[in-house]
């Protein structure tokens, strides 16, 4: 069961992610992104792993950069990911992530949406009682 829901935005799509801790929040956000891109994400086999290391000025930008980097790997290199493992150093605003997946194979993977970009509009990340919440609007 995915820890995210979509919310309405007239032209685009909003993703609201809730998680117990920051690493799960980042992993679930990435999962949500690929769930939007791929029709049936269960068909993407976690065969190969890609390492992602990032540092940003603010936590909200770190989330943005993480999703944006994964989107780039998809659009430029045809990567689809279905499993994520993320370590987040909140004070240093640094991330070490692993994304497992495979290259797009049109005979097995049906793509649902072209996500043009992760947007800054309404982008937020906050600590709530007992967990974390993030909202991201993606441009479709």
């Amino acid at each position: 069961m995915l820890m995210y829901e979509t919310f309405d935005h007239t032209a685009d799509l909003g993703l609201r992610i809730k998680a117990d801790d920051l690493p799960s929040l980042f992993a679930d956000a990435a999962h949500a992104l690929f769930d939007v891109i791929v029709d049936d994400l269960s068909l993407v086999q976690p065969q190969q792993v890609v390492d992602v290391n990032l540092q940003s000025d603010e936590l909200v930008y770190l989330l943005f950069d993480w999703l944006n980097h994964l989107l780039f790997l998809f659009d430029a290199k045809g990567w689809l990911f279905s499993r994520f493992d993320v370590q987040v150093n909140e004070s240093a605003c640094r991330l070490q992530g692993k994304a497992w997946g495979e290259r797009l194979d049109p005979s097995r993977h049906v793509l649902a949406h072209e996500v043009k970009a992760i947007t800054y509009h309404g982008l937020r990340i906050e600590q709530k009682e007992g967990g974390w919440l993030a909202e991201v609007i993606v441009d479709i």
Binding site: A11, H121, I137
Partner: peptide
Amino acid sequence: IHWGYGFCI
């Protein structure tokens, strides 16, 4: 016009 991001469309 409709709701965009930043600028409206």
